[in-house]
């Protein structure tokens, strides 16, 4: 008698093979469609052949740009990564600082919590013009857009996580002679930091969104800037590799955060089901 479908587990190699299959199918479908279109019209730009991708990547990433004398692809990558790393670090720090203060100290919460809720409801893209006016068109405005986009979410999440630290632990710490500062430093912060990492992982999607939006509007280099620039020439042979590269960078970012958290906080991951 075969077991029910929900109880059947694929073995590890099967799982890997099944995971790769949809990707291979997508690539195959793309290649067939591209082949068809190019047969009809060799100068079609919508679905370029693999060889055009290779050419473009070679041109963008492995040969000097004639005008600037640099490698555009890597310049774009470095400036985008710089922006997102700085912005995410600042946001995480703000999230931890204000979230824990709000969660742990009722007098601070009473003052700041309504304000932060209100700020978090402002659509960040709506105030992008204000950011450009106030901070100029330089790096600061782009970093600020990301910070304004994700920091309120992180603050609110950290506040919630702080409030979720069981009251029993806070009471226990007081009976052990800890003052408010000790409780924040030794009981609350170490317990919310791994949760901060998971919230940062969740907010990375929005961070990329805001980064690309800011670069698209006002920038002179960056992954988002390049995509929007070459859109004018329907350069799918550049846009698609850039999109795949951005996806890959986002994946690496997420993966590194996950592994770091598992390494640093075994007690947190030991009592949780992994996602």
């Amino acid at each position: 008698m075969p077991r029910r479908l929900i109880n059947r587990q694929p073995s590890k190699p099967t799982r890997v093979a099944l995971g790769i299959l949809p990707f291979l199918m997508l690539i195959a479908i793309y290649m067939m469609a591209s082949h068809q279109r190019l047969l009809e019209n060799p100068s079609d730009k919508l679905l370029p052949a693999m060889s055009s991708f290779a050419n473009s990547i070679e041109r963008m990433a492995f040969s000097e740009n004639q005008r600037t004398g640099t490698y555009l692809f890597w310049d774009d990558t470095v400036s985008s990564m710089q922006r997102i790393c700085i912005a995410v670090s600042i946001s995480a720090f703000i999230g931890l600082l204000f979230g824990v203060a709000n969660g742990a100290i009722p007098y601070i919460r009473a003052k700041l919590s309504p304000l932060i809720t209100a700020i978090s409801l402002i659509p960040p893209m709506a105030i992008l013009p204000i950011l450009f006016i106030v901070f100029g068109l330089g790096e600061l405005a782009k970093v600020m857009l990301i910070v304004i986009g994700i920091a309120p979410f992180l603050i609110r999440d950290m506040q919630q996580r702080t409030l979720e630290v069981p009251a029993e632990q806070i009471i226990k710490a007081q009976t052990l002679g800890a003052n408010s500062w000790h409780i924040i430093l030794r009981v609350i912060v170490p317990q919310v930091v791994p949760r901060l990492i998971s919230s940062v992982r969740l907010s990375l999607g929005s961070a990329w969104l805001f980064l690309i939006a800011a670069e698209a509007i006002a920038s002179t280099e960056g992954l988002g800037y390049r995509i929007f620039l070459v859109r004018r020439y329907l350069a799918m042979d550049i846009i698609l590799p850039y999109v795949i590269w951005i996806t890959f960078l986002a994946f690496v970012f997420d993966f590194v955060l996950k592994k770091t958290s598992q390494k640093l906080f075994p007690w947190f991951h030991g009592s949780l089901k992994e996602s």
């Binding site: 069981p166 029993e168 632990q169 009976t175 009981v187 317990q191």
Partner: peptide, 19 residues
């Protein structure tokens, strides 16, 4: 408020999970 004069053991959650 709770202080050092009084020790407490609850049914659950009275140890620090991160230590």
């Amino acid at each position: 408020e709770p202080d050092e004069n009084r020790g407490i053991v609850f049914q659950r959650y009275s140890v620090f999970p991160h230590m």
